Amino acid sequence: MRTFRHAKLMASTLRTLLAERGASIGHAESLEIVARQFGLRNWNILAARIAAAERQETPAALPKGWSIAGTTPGNYAIGLDAAQSSRTEKIVAISCLFSSDDPDAARIQNGFGTLMQAVDARPFIGKRLRFSALLKTRDVPGHATIWMRVDDKAPDTILFDNLMSRPANGALTGTSDWTARQIVFQIPEDADSLHYGLLLTGMGTVWAKTVRLEVVDDNTPPTATRQHYERQRRVRRVIEGGPQNLDFSDIA
């Protein structure tokens, strides 16, 4: 059974059948007709859908110790960007698989994908902890950012920051060159798990490198104050051994 993945073959069959009946159309026109048959506005949208399906079948390499999550992680290619990386510097990316003119663009804009770690927070209790990275973006109408969260034993979230509410030095949008972003928490006594990562909402691409998770002195002000997010109760999932592979050099 043929699907949209066979669009070029269908366009070729269409041209052949029309030629047998004395009608002639060009290759580009036949592709446009096939796209309309699938309910899409033009061939460019259908071609993007085909490319997205192919990328979903060959996911990016995932750095060891990191995991993929989000509301719609299947809409994104998440992992090592081999083309951007070098032998000495590894770069990860979250890239939406769909184009901005896709008919489902409004729905896709409401989702997000993240590359993250979750570790035991207890070794950091009483310490001031900074999570930072260099970010670069392309064609991001939503938000590209880093985030960090602390949960207690319930587990309920008691600290959270994703830069999105900041008037300055917040989440990135549009297209930007490498930009430094950071989050600083004072880890409270009842902290149980620590979560952090890279986040993209909607479409476009965000790249990250020079990721750091480090203890800083009291002269570095926290970026978020304690709150209680009881409605966001979660399952406790942490990796053993604490933060690892922050330079993305070890590929699973």
Rank of each mutant, 00 (worst) to 15 (best):
T3E: 06
T3P: 00
T3L: 06
F4A: 10
K8S: 14
M10N: 09
T13E: 15
L14I: 09
L18D: 05
H27N: 15
H27L: 13
A35Y: 01
L40S: 07
R41H: 10
N44V: 13
I50K: 04
P59L: 08
A60G: 05
P63H: 02
K64H: 14
G65N: 04
A69G: 12
T72S: 14
G74D: 13
D81R: 02
A82Q: 12
A83C: 02
S85M: 03
I91L: 04
V92A: 04
C96S: 14
C96I: 05
P103H: 04
I108K: 10
G111W: 09
G111N: 05
G113K: 03
T114N: 12
R122K: 13
I125L: 07
R128W: 01
F131V: 03
S132I: 08
L134G: 09
T137G: 00
R138G: 03
R138M: 06
D139F: 09
V140Y: 06
T145Y: 00
W147V: 01
W147K: 02
M148Q: 09
K153P: 09
K153A: 15
A154I: 08
I158V: 15
M164R: 12
R166H: 11
L172M: 04
T175M: 06
R181F: 04
Q182F: 11
I183A: 00
A191W: 02
D192W: 09
L194H: 00
L198D: 00
T201C: 08
G202R: 06
G202I: 08
G204F: 06
V206N: 05
K209L: 06
L213C: 06
L213N: 05
V216G: 03
D217R: 01
P222M: 02
T225K: 11
T225E: 14
R226C: 04
R233E: 13
R237D: 13
R237C: 13
P243Y: 01
Q244M: 12
F248I: 04
D250A: 15
